[in-house]
């Protein structure tokens, strides 16, 4: 909880600084845009949170986004599939990918890092193969579906600002994820096995099944993210669509209080973490006019955050030891 407040304070501070430093930052258009991007990245961040809670990692998210984001318009406009069939196909593929990752990791005991690193290369390569590296897009079609990503919900009484539709998607996904993680027995199982898989297994928990579930949730949400991202930008290039998105998602999860050692995670935290990264990017571009250093800034902020977290933890342990000695 303290960690959440800390990261939220940091987000507020960065926002306040940006509001003061840049006129364009506080424009309704910019803020709408930030919220829409936060919502899109938030969905994939929630997905990877489940995997990180188990102590695993998923490096293939960006490539799944590429596969789904390019595959959906390709099926619709090149292969002329019907919309329901195409949507069902890309979601089924996402679920299947998660299932494959989970089974390879639990049954064959392969390292999550290796399995999903191979996925990272595999899915993007496959996409570049079947699209022949050509840009795919919806052109002027599928306006109804695109509302999901580009639509806006007006706020009564406020002019010049409307809530982007993906925010509604994020709220639904986040609520479901938070209820699952914090209120069901399965969420508790994930947290327990992420902390100590042996103890969870010795307590009668089917840890393999839970781990598979986490990878399925992650890939499925990455697939949903892929659909939303491509609806947002209308066309996608297989060579770089979704590139590095897994790293944004992982960084957001870590900033939001997940431990890569497993057993810790917060849905609200990952959303705040996502927002912080995107606001930082935005600020770097607007304030310095050097968007090419954005990765350096984001990297430095995350590193500083993780170092601060570790130091606070050590301080707390020392203080506890001192207190016990005094007793």
């Amino acid at each position: 909880m303290k960690k959440l407040l800390g990261i939220f304070g940091l987000l507020l501070a960065v926002c306040l600084f940006a509001t003061w430093a840049s006129e364009s930052f506080r424009s309704g258009y910019n803020i709408e845009n930030l919220i829409r991007r936060t919502a899109l990245f938030g969905v994939i961040g929630i997905g990877v949170t489940f995997v990180i809670v188990t102590g695993g990692i998923d490096l293939s998210i960006g490539s799944v986004i590429c596969l789904v984001g390019c595959g959906l318009p390709w099926l619709l406009t090149v292969q002329h599939w019907s919309l329901p069939a195409a949507l069902a196909a890309v979601i089924a593929v996402s679920v299947g990918i998660g299932l494959a990752h989970g089974l390879l990791i639990t049954r064959l005991r392969l390292q999550p890092f290796i399995v999903t690193l191979c996925g990272l290369m595999l899915y993007r390569g496959v996409t570049r193969g079947f699209t022949a590296d050509q840009t795919v897009g919806f052109a002027d079609g599928y306006k109804g579906l695109r509302v999901l990503a580009t639509g806006k919900i007006p706020v009564p009484g406020i002019q010049g600002f409307e809530i982007p539709a993906p925010w509604a998607v994020l709220v639904v996904v986040a609520l479901a994820a938070a209820v699952f993680l914090n209120r069901t027995i399965y969420g508790r199982y994930l947290l327990a096995l992420g902390n100590n898989e042996n103890a969870a297994r010795y307590s009668g928990i089917n840890t393999s099944r839970m781990i598979v579930l986490a990878y399925v949730l992650c890939s499925t949400l990455a697939g949903l993210g892929g659909v939303l991202f491509v609806l947002d930008v209308n066309s996608a290039q297989p060579v770089d669509f979704g590139n590095f998105y897994e790293l944004y998602a992982i960084a957001a999860a870590v900033l939001g209080g997940c431990s890569l050692r497993g057993g810790e995670g917060s849905i609200l935290g990952v959303i705040i973490g996502t927002a912080l990264i995107l606001v930082l990017r935005n600020v770097v571009t607007l304030v310095t006019n050097h968007s090419n250093i954005e990765f350096a800034i984001i990297g430095a902020v995350i590193l500083a955050g993780v170092i601060a977290d570790e130091l606070v933890k050590r301080y707390a342990i020392r203080r506890r030891a001192a207190r016990e000695l005094a007793q």
Binding site: A192, N195, Y202, G263
Partner: peptide, 13 residues
């Protein structure tokens, strides 16, 4: 510590 308790979780859980 490795098989009995989940060290990072509270007593209740």
């Amino acid at each position: 510590k490795r098989e009995g308790v989940v060290l990072g979780m509270p007593v209740r859980e």
